[in-house]
């Protein structure tokens, strides 16, 4: 357990100290949110209607942006080989890395969401609902993306391929995240169903993601 704790601590320290990784994701999220009104016009009722969807899309793209670093940095300095060879099961190592990555880059997106909701003319309650769905949904994005990151770690042009592989797999998360956010705004009674399914998807990816990522790391690097 201490090994995993040390790994999480190390990844968080790297994320905080090196290059402001978390803030770049949030900055990208903000840029996407700012770009949308330029594309569709400063129509406040329209922005209010599609606001939750914009926030979800922005957060999804931003979490995709930081995914590539999940394994490549470790690959570059050789620590990935040590992680694979260590006595800790690689699946648990992957969970720890995903957790650290989510705290460093997913959680800031969730925290920034209520603020960005103001730009899209959302009521505070709606923004908070979107933040809640993102809080549950972004771990699923990280865990699904981890599979792609593990597959792409040994490739030269991993970045674009990562997006192509990961985005179709994230469609269920997007569907239920946006559905739950919209349901909260339109008819609060039907919020529970999509939100529960979103939680279920996150839990499912918690099982599939680390196992598949660990398998592809083992297969890819030997």
């Amino acid at each position: 357990m201490t090994a995993l704790g040390a790994l999480i601590r190390r990844d968080l320290l790297i994320a905080i100290r090196a290059g402001g990784g978390a803030l770049i994701g949030v900055l990208f999220f903000l840029t996407v949110v700012v770009l949308i009104p330029f594309a569709i016009g400063p129509d406040l009722p329209l922005l209010k209607r599609i606001g939750p969807s914009i926030l979800w899309l922005g957060a999804m793209l931003a979490s995709l942006l930081t995914l590539e670093r999940l394994f490549t940095a470790d690959q570059d300095d050789g620590s990935l080989d040590l992680l694979i060879m260590s006595r800790t099961p690689l699946e648990l190592t992957c969970v720890a890395k995903a957790l650290a990555h989510w705290i460093a880059s997913g959680l800031p997106l969730v925290v920034a969401t209520p603020l960005f909701g103001l730009l899209l003319n959302l009521e505070p309650k709606e923004s908070l609902t979107v933040a809640l769905t993102l809080l549950v949904g972004t771990p699923a994005l990280t865990l699904t993306g981890m599979i792609g990151a593990a597959l792409a770690v040994t490739l030269r042009r991993g970045g674009l391929l990562l997006a192509v592989l990961v985005l179709p797999l994230s469609i269920p998360v997007l569907i239920f995240g946006v559905a739950a956010s919209n349901a909260a705004a339109l008819e609060p009674s039907s919020f529970g169903t999509p939100f529960s399914i979103l939680c279920a998807i996150t839990l499912t990816t918690l099982v599939i993601g680390p196992v598949a990522a660990a398998a592809s790391l083992r297969e890819g690097l030997d």
């Binding site: 597959l151 598949a212 592809s216 297969e219 890819g220």
Partner: peptide, 14 residues
């Protein structure tokens, strides 16, 4: 053979 194993994992995930 490495491409095969990576693709196999993606196929199973799919």
């Amino acid at each position: 053979s490495r491409a095969a194993r990576a693709a196999a994992i993606l196929t199973l995930v799919g």
